[in-house]
Amino acid sequence: MKKKKIDLSNMSALLVLIVLCILLSIAEPAFHSFANFINILQQVTVIAVLALGVNIVIFTGGIDISVGSVVAFSGIVMGKLVVEGGMPSIVGVAAALVIGAACGTFNGIMIAKFKLQPMIATLAMMSMARGAALTLAGGETITGYSDGFRWIGIGTVPGTQIPVQIIFMILLYLLFYYIMKYRKFGRYIYSIGGNEEATRLSGINVDKFKTLAYTLSGLCAAIASVILVAKLNSAQSTAGQDYEMDAIASCVIGGTSLLGGFGSVWGTFVGAIIMIVIRNGLNLLNVSANLQKLVIGVVILLAVLADSIRNKAAKK
């Protein structure tokens, strides 16, 4: 019974995406070309990677609104080390990942051990990470990375037009799909979101797994940051603003329940693509950005409504 419902939720997002694509293809011939397909995947990468981490947190019944700020903080640290400190790019990337994971772990400890509300704990981190980025960099933009590093963001797979960042994104999704579906970790995460107390009583170290979920979210934010910096050739303290909202929206549109315990990795991927497809399509049609916001708002609303109706049905 439960399995059937999961399939249904995935289907609805996918269905929306397919309908969107058909409509846009009719309205705008430039939409359905291979090059545009690649553009969409490239444009979705940063948000999709962020959403991947946030998704796991939402599975536990939590929320992480600090990821946008963590993107900025980890990016600035990397920029400082590589551009101003003259360190090899790999050291910078490693430092960014450590910073991201550390921010996430801190969130996790505050939430799991000190029982802070996830919203409040990550709100604090949102402010702290942004503040740290600003303190380190002030208003400056840190630019000037090696070609090797920039390859992460703008390089293509040899012999094709496919940006390597798309490959990174897909590999990451495959990895998370595997973990969530076939490893104990995945089952525990869903179970915590479904009923935390029962999970605890069955002898599972809930605190540990909850903390790990936030660590992964921070880590994903840092990975997104590395890709973003490489793509734009710049680290900025103002980077990633509002990205947490795009990430959360991707999860919700993809069928992840904000109550926890319900949702899928691929649904979120589809959710992120829906958001980018709307922007891409409306750009191609030369429609004003104000309308884009409106359309995305409506899509989010419909997704949450579907979530709520599903929850009601589940209770019965």
């Binding site: 609104i65 600003l134 303290s237 103002t238 603003q241 909202m245 109550l259």
Partner: peptide, 28 residues
């Protein structure tokens, strides 16, 4: 109760989005 908390969370989150939407950024 949990649902209520979630709704409050989303409201707060969207309030913050509006707060952050700007050309510039946050500054020390």
């Amino acid at each position: 109760n949990r649902q209520l908390k979630k709704i409050t969370a989303i409201l707060m989150a969207s309030a913050m989005v509006f707060g952050l939407t700007a050309c510039g950024g946050s500054g020390g």
